[in-house]
Amino acid sequence: MLGEGIIKGMVETARNFLGSYVREDRLTTVQYPEEREPQIENARQFPFLVYDGEDWETGLRCVACQICEKECPPQCIYIVKSKDKKPDYKGQMQFYPAIFDIDLSVCMSCQICVEVCPFEAIKMDTDYEWSTPDRFAALLVHKDQLARPNAYYQQLHPTDAAASDAVLAQERARAQAKARAAAELKTKAAAPPPTS
């Protein structure tokens, strides 16, 4: 009969209404600033730059290759390459970013910059409390605010960090092996040919 469904619906909403006063578990709302839910490991909010060692300025992994700048869909990364070079984790001389800015108001947390970076230099942070009273300058995040130690990355995303550390270790080992081979070759070349 007409109206049956309406009555059923009204009963259901009445049960919700009354039930929410009786049973706490019906209310799934998290009272945010006081209560927080732990974030899942793969949560991603905003990129940060990883550095090795103690000093963030010398330790930044980023080599200012500008791939992320070109790939970022909303074009919110701005990089200026340095004039000089500094040694990277392999000891190879590389450029570094003189300026590395990300516009927080434009970034859409897509993680594409992370995917394209060949140097494991940019990763996603899980911190989401970036609100500021200033709409413009404060939302342009600079290099010094972006830099985070590798330990922080390991703590945020243990699985990813382990994988990326392994990749870097492998690279480093290969570079060292190559250097050793080159050195051996050199010593071999330098050594007088064996007399027969």
Binding site: N16, F17, S20, L27, T29
Partner: peptide
């Protein structure tokens, strides 16, 4: 308040 409780919100 009422709509909230009907939808199991505060």
């Amino acid at each position: 308040k009422g709509l909230g409780r009907i939808q199991n919100r505060y």
